Simulated assay, not measured.
Amino acid sequence: MTFCNRLMEENLPIWEQCLNSAFLQKLGEGTLPWDCFKGYIVDDSLYLREYAKVFAWGMAKAEDMEEIRTYYELLSFVNEGEGATRLCYLERFSLTDAVIQRLPQRPENLAYTRAMIATARDGAGAAECMMACLPCMVSYGWIFTRLLERFPGVGDTPYWPLVRDYAGAEYRAACERWAAFTEKICTGLEPARERRCAEIFRACSVHELRFWEMSGRPREDI
């Protein structure tokens, strides 16, 4: 079993808790309160802004052009892929990116992004950087694929564009590329550094769970 596959398997119980969170279960059922979803889109927008900084640290510390190209691809995917759906939802809420960027991150969101940025900034290199951002990437693919299997009727709800983004073949292929890159840079790590990478992956998976739990409560400032 590869290093990345082992990490994913070890953290599946956390991802299952994410899938079973009230927010995602109600989203799948089509009963999620619109104000909770609105809060999620705002929080996700603020998260993605900080998430991009992880890739910036990765590029700054990159040892070759392959690493730089990978981080650039990740940044482009976040901006052009995930960003497009997010902006469509913001328009439905009569909100703009410029307006929401002035809002604060909620505590769970802030703790998560601070942890990722600190890991990328202070880590030894690409392995730590990818451990910080990979749980978000691959857990979204796993979660939304299973959400669609569990709730096929979600395709008839307003939440379908979000689910479609992460449950489709294009996103799955992108995750496979990023996991393959991560596997390459983590091959041959010293045991202590490998253990540290596993700790980072698990910590960020827990942050993902806290983010979904937070999203079950609407924001009070929008």
Rank of each mutant, 00 (worst) to 15 (best):
N5I: 00
M8A: 07
E10C: 05
P13V: 02
I14Y: 03
S21T: 05
A22T: 08
F23T: 03
L27M: 15
E29F: 01
G30V: 02
G30H: 02
T31W: 02
T31A: 08
T31K: 12
L32K: 03
L32T: 01
P33Q: 06
F37S: 04
F37E: 03
V42L: 10
V42D: 03
V42E: 03
D43S: 14
D44L: 07
D44K: 02
D44W: 02
D44M: 04
Y47N: 09
R49K: 13
E50M: 12
A52Y: 03
F55K: 02
F55R: 01
G58L: 06
G58N: 05
A60T: 01
I68D: 06
T70H: 10
T70Y: 05
Y71L: 04
E73D: 14
L75C: 10
S76A: 12
S76T: 09
S76K: 11
S76Y: 04
F77V: 02
N79C: 08
G81P: 00
T85N: 11
T85S: 08
L87K: 15
Y89E: 04
Y89W: 10
L90G: 08
L95Q: 11
A98V: 09
Q101C: 14
R102T: 14
Q105L: 15
Q105K: 15
I117A: 13
A118G: 12
T119C: 15
A120G: 12
G123N: 13
A124T: 13
E128N: 13
C129K: 04
P135G: 07
P135L: 08
F144K: 02
E149F: 02
R150Y: 05
R150I: 00
F151P: 05
F151G: 07
F151N: 05
G155A: 10
Y159K: 05
L162K: 06
Y166I: 06
A167L: 03
G168R: 01
A173W: 00
A174M: 14
F181A: 10
G188M: 10
A192S: 11
A198N: 08
E199P: 05
F201D: 03
H207T: 04
E213F: 04
E213K: 14
R217G: 07
P218Y: 07
R219W: 09
